[in-house]
Amino acid sequence: MKTYKVYRDIRKGALIFGLPVSLFALLMIAVVGSLLVIIFSFSLGIILALITLNLLLYFTLLKLVQSPGLFHLKKVFPSTISNKQINLLSYED
């Protein structure tokens, strides 16, 4: 019998080579820039350096996708929302 994935898995987002579309676009911009550098300054050292830099960028982006909490510095919303005015007087005594 054929099995299908649960529908909620579709809502996780599109991934290309394990990266979200925005990070994949960043990677492709880096690759195209590297190709331009290779075309206009053709040497073996530059080719090897750019290949290693592109691979390093790819693996770094994969690591960031797997653990998104690395650069999450602060919470966006407070834990509680209140209309109570902040006052130094204590009315509970």
Rank of each mutant, 00 (worst) to 15 (best):
G33W: 09
L55K: 04
H72R: 15
P78T: 02
F24C: 08
L44H: 12
I51R: 06
S90H: 13
H72T: 06
T80F: 13
S43I: 03
V31Q: 05
L15V: 08
V21K: 08
T52S: 14
D9E: 15
H72I: 06
L35N: 09
T80W: 02
Y4M: 09
K2V: 07
L26V: 12
M1F: 10
T80E: 02
F24L: 04
G45M: 11
L27M: 10
K84T: 09
Y58R: 03
L57C: 00
E92P: 06
I29P: 05
Y91T: 12
P20A: 01
F40G: 04
N54F: 01
L36F: 14
P68C: 04
R8G: 08
S82P: 02
I29Y: 09
G45E: 00
S22F: 12
M1K: 13
M28F: 07
H72N: 01
T80K: 15
S34T: 06
Q66P: 03
A14D: 02
R8M: 08
I29E: 03
I38T: 07
P78M: 03
I10V: 14
S34A: 09
L61A: 01
N87F: 05
L48C: 05
S22N: 11
A49S: 08
Y58W: 13
G18E: 00
S82H: 03
T80H: 05
S67M: 12
V31Y: 11
L70W: 09
